[in-house]
Simulated assay, not measured.
Amino acid sequence: MSRATASYSGVPRWIVAVAVIGAAFVVLPLAAMVVRVNWAEFIPLITSPASVDALWLSLRTSVISTALCILLGVPMAIVLARTSFWGQKVLRSLVLLPLVLPPVVGGIALLYTFGRRGLLGQSVEVLGVTIAFSTTAVVLAQTFVALPFLVLSLEGALRTVGTRYEAVAATLGARPTTVLRRVTLPLVLPALVSGAVLSFARALGEFGATLTFAGSLQGVTRTLPLEIYLQRETDPDAAVALSLVLVAVAVVVVALAHQAGESEGLRFWRRRSA
């Protein structure tokens, strides 16, 4: 690519103007929240026992949920992208359904599946295991709403890169698992990282399904979004301070992961060009 092409910026001015308006639409509410923060009481507000419990619970459960999304979502995306079977379009629609469902509907579905009188809940209840209104329920609710983000990102990347390199590896005698580990996953690693980041961010901000399926018990199921919602009614300053903390955590995580994804993508294309 020539230097002239690399530095090309012939974007119509009206596109830039609309982009500025869109950016302002996102940035101005965040700026308004920053202005509203009571900075004199900021540290005491975010370090209260309830706030700290909610923050650590959110981070802990979001990490576990993201791991589950990777564990379950990678095989799902590969099957959807690399195989063809009857009912595939219907299955894809169902897998991506949580993207458009109101979270509270997802919470109700989980409750009637894993609750004490649910489809599977009755069976595990006999074994002395209670899922609903526990920390496990928080993880399941977050995974339910976050999983489609990883599947959608990874399936799109798999379809984009095609199957050329996988076919070459297979003709050279590589087993399917070896092809998956040495060819397929490295090809789509940036998309996998991006999908994991989206899943983590969605899990971190989950509210409706968690409240419906897990309730709001401090230190057990009350995540940071639930704590913000409760504080909004009793202590607006605390709600704004905690909201800013949630925004800061999300921005840091997304920025770091985006940088990691870009770096991995550059390393891959350099290895490919070598």
Rank of each mutant, 00 (worst) to 15 (best):
residue 2 S to N: 05
residue 2 S to I: 02
residue 5 T to L: 14
residue 6 A to Q: 06
residue 6 A to T: 01
residue 10 G to A: 09
residue 10 G to C: 06
residue 11 V to D: 01
residue 12 P to D: 12
residue 14 W to V: 06
residue 18 V to M: 13
residue 19 A to Y: 02
residue 22 G to M: 12
residue 23 A to P: 01
residue 23 A to W: 06
residue 29 P to E: 08
residue 29 P to I: 06
residue 31 A to Y: 14
residue 33 M to D: 00
residue 35 V to Q: 13
residue 35 V to L: 14
residue 36 R to L: 02
residue 37 V to Q: 08
residue 41 E to K: 12
residue 44 P to T: 05
residue 47 T to C: 07
residue 48 S to L: 01
residue 48 S to M: 03
residue 53 D to Q: 11
residue 54 A to S: 14
residue 55 L to M: 14
residue 55 L to R: 06
residue 61 T to E: 09
residue 62 S to M: 04
residue 63 V to Y: 08
residue 69 C to A: 14
residue 71 L to R: 00
residue 74 V to Q: 08
residue 77 A to H: 13
residue 81 A to G: 14
residue 81 A to W: 04
residue 85 F to Q: 09
residue 86 W to D: 03
residue 87 G to K: 06
residue 87 G to I: 06
residue 88 Q to L: 07
residue 88 Q to M: 12
residue 90 V to M: 11
residue 92 R to P: 00
residue 98 P to Y: 10
residue 102 P to W: 11
residue 107 G to N: 06
residue 108 I to L: 15
residue 115 G to N: 13
residue 120 L to F: 14
residue 126 V to W: 13
residue 126 V to Q: 13
residue 128 G to I: 11
residue 129 V to Q: 09
residue 131 I to D: 11
residue 134 S to Q: 15
residue 136 T to F: 01
residue 138 V to C: 10
residue 138 V to P: 11
residue 143 T to C: 11
residue 146 A to S: 14
residue 146 A to Q: 07
residue 147 L to F: 01
residue 148 P to K: 09
residue 148 P to Y: 10
residue 149 F to D: 04
residue 151 V to R: 06
residue 152 L to F: 05
residue 161 V to A: 03
residue 162 G to L: 07
residue 162 G to P: 06
residue 162 G to K: 07
residue 163 T to M: 12
residue 163 T to V: 15
residue 167 A to C: 00
residue 168 V to M: 15
residue 169 A to K: 05
residue 171 T to N: 12
residue 172 L to S: 08
residue 173 G to F: 04
residue 173 G to I: 02
residue 177 T to A: 11
residue 178 T to I: 04
residue 178 T to K: 09
residue 178 T to F: 00
residue 182 R to T: 13
residue 182 R to V: 03
residue 183 V to R: 02
residue 183 V to C: 02
residue 185 L to F: 05
residue 186 P to T: 01
residue 187 L to R: 08
residue 188 V to L: 07
residue 191 A to C: 09
residue 192 L to G: 05
residue 197 V to L: 08
residue 201 A to L: 12
residue 204 L to G: 01
residue 206 E to F: 08
residue 213 F to G: 08
residue 213 F to K: 05
residue 215 G to K: 07
residue 219 G to I: 12
residue 221 T to E: 10
residue 222 R to V: 05
residue 225 P to K: 09
residue 226 L to M: 13
residue 228 I to S: 03
residue 229 Y to F: 15
residue 230 L to H: 04
residue 231 Q to M: 13
residue 233 E to P: 00
residue 237 D to L: 05
residue 240 V to R: 11
residue 247 V to Q: 00
residue 251 V to C: 14
residue 252 V to K: 06
residue 253 V to W: 10
residue 253 V to K: 05
residue 260 A to D: 02
residue 260 A to R: 09
residue 261 G to Q: 10
residue 262 E to L: 10
residue 262 E to N: 02
residue 262 E to I: 02
residue 265 G to R: 09
residue 266 L to P: 00
residue 266 L to V: 11
residue 268 F to W: 07
residue 269 W to T: 08
